[in-house]
Design a protein around this nucleic acid. Structure first.
Length: 382
RNA sequence: GUGGGUAUAGCCCAGUUGGUUAGAGCGCUAGUUUGUGGCACUAGAGGCCAAGAGUUCGACUCUCUUUACCCACC
């Protein structure tokens, strides 16, 4: 797999956090990285050019959704996902394992696979690890995820153990089935909040990892401190020469906490979702632009931000657009929120390169508050 | 001018034969959002029921007067 290579560029002497480069067939990704989500082969409301202007180096697309519509064969006929959606940088496809979990109303999981109904037309379908890989190969992303079983944050031990074991079994099937050399298959660590399950999972999972692996089953309803605790627990098991991807995270504070705990890749729908609902990310925390307080506020969403939204528009205008249900409001805030996170990662990388990430961390966490008085948790520094 | 109708939340309207703290929708205000089934979800504020006088144990509901607006006809 010469097309894939990960190299650690620098490890921060102050914090142990690291900067690296992940080489893929569609370009190099500087890590730590935040990856915007484009479920249906589209980062909602944004053109690929706009996403590039936000300095995103890689985006996600979703196997589950594209399998249901328009179908992997059509995407393949269009020349693959990159060509279909006109995004020439790296793409990662999620396998659909998480959707099986989040769309639990209509599913039945067995060792063989998952029976579920299409949310679009109700058609009964059956997804297996082999089928998920087939679909991901036809979609043609650079990085593809193994088909896993995710459990909710408060799942009991027995359920979590079964899901973790099934994920390992499916992982083996995914690897045996995967053929394309120009795609990197990332295995997924499960085990919920149980450390013995996590340990078993990561040990077995890493046997398959070649150039990257991911941590799933976190940020699924558990308290942040619990997630940080699991990340601290897993850290000693990480190989140095592979990127570590924490799935579904997250909020700015979680990204900073994650990097402090050795994570290299993140993805989350949060910036684009809250944008469409009228909330902006800023260094001081969330700014609900739709609030009445900004009715006559003619300053940018965030002073000093270099995004298209902040360079050209005011809070009063964005608020008006959101309140008038104009799609441009969600679009402009999406641009800001994505750029906010890519800029946050740039700043993090710079701080690591300059061996001052611990200072950065302390300054960031002292200023930033998630929502109302978000609880803070000091990192486990060892 | 005559006859008829209407008047309840910022707006458009419900309010059973008069009976506890007068309701919905929209709007407004705030909160939520973590591998996207989301122009979503949750909550809150806001009414001297046009004004005045009666009937009644009790009136948004019944009677009278006034005011404003609407319709029809002279």
């Amino acid at each position: 797999m010469e097309q894939f290579r990960y190299e650690v560029i620098h490890t921060c002497k102050q914090s142990g956090a690291r900067v690296g480069k992940l080489y893929t067939p569609h370009g190099v990704i500087d890590t730590p990285v935040f990856m915007p989500v484009g479920t249906n082969a589209s980062v909602k409301s944004l053109t690929p050019d706009a996403v590039k202007d936000c300095k995103a180096s890689i985006i996600l697309a979703n196997t589950y959704h594209l399998f249901l519509r328009p179908g992997e064969d059509l995407v393949a006929k269009a020349g693959g996902l990159h060509n279909f959606m006109k995004w020439d940088r790296p793409i990662l496809t999620d396998s659909g394992g998480f959707q099986v979990f989040s769309l639990s109303k209509m599913r039945k999981i067995t060792d063989e696979g998952v029976a579920f109904q299409s949310y679009i037309d109700g058609k009964k379908l059956f997804m297996t690890p082999e089928l998920a890989i087939d679909v991901e190969e036809k979609l043609g992303a650079d990085i593809i995820m193994a088909f896993d079983e995710c459990t909710e944050g408060h799942a009991d031990y027995k359920t979590s153990k079964k899901a973790m074991e099934r994920t390992l079994m499916w992982l083996d099937r995914c690897y045996k089935h995967h053929k394309r050399e120009d795609q990197m298959l990332f295995p997924i660590v499960q085990g919920n909040m149980y450390k013995d399950l996590r340990e078993q999972s990561i040990k077995e999972t890493l046997k398959y990892a070649k150039c990257g692996f991911s941590i799933g089953g976190l940020s699924v309803g558990e308290p942040k401190e619990t997630m940080y605790d699991i990340l601290d627990f897993l850290r000693p098991f990480y190989p140095e020469n592979q990127p570590r991807y924490l799935m579904g995270v997250g909020s700015p504070d979680c990204l900073v906490e994650g990097v402090m705990r050795g994570i290299d890749m993140f993805d989350c729908v949060l910036p684009t979702r809250i944008a469409r609902n009228g909330t902006a990310l800023t260094r001081n925390g969330n700014l609900t632009v739709r609030n009445g307080a900004y009715k006559e506020d003619f300053t940018p969403v965030e002073e000093g931000c270099d995004c298209y939204c902040c360079k050209n528009f005011t809070r009063a205008y964005i608020r008006h657009l959101i309140n008038a249900d104009e799609i441009l409001g969600g679009e402009l805030l999406s641009i800001h929120n994505i750029r906010f996170l890519t800029k946050l990662m740039e700043d993090i990388r710079t701080a690591i390169m300059e061996d001052r990430f611990l200072d950065f961390y302390n300054e960031f966490t002292s200023k930033y508050e998630w929502g109302h008085g978000g609880e803070k948790q000091a990192p486990n520094l060892k």
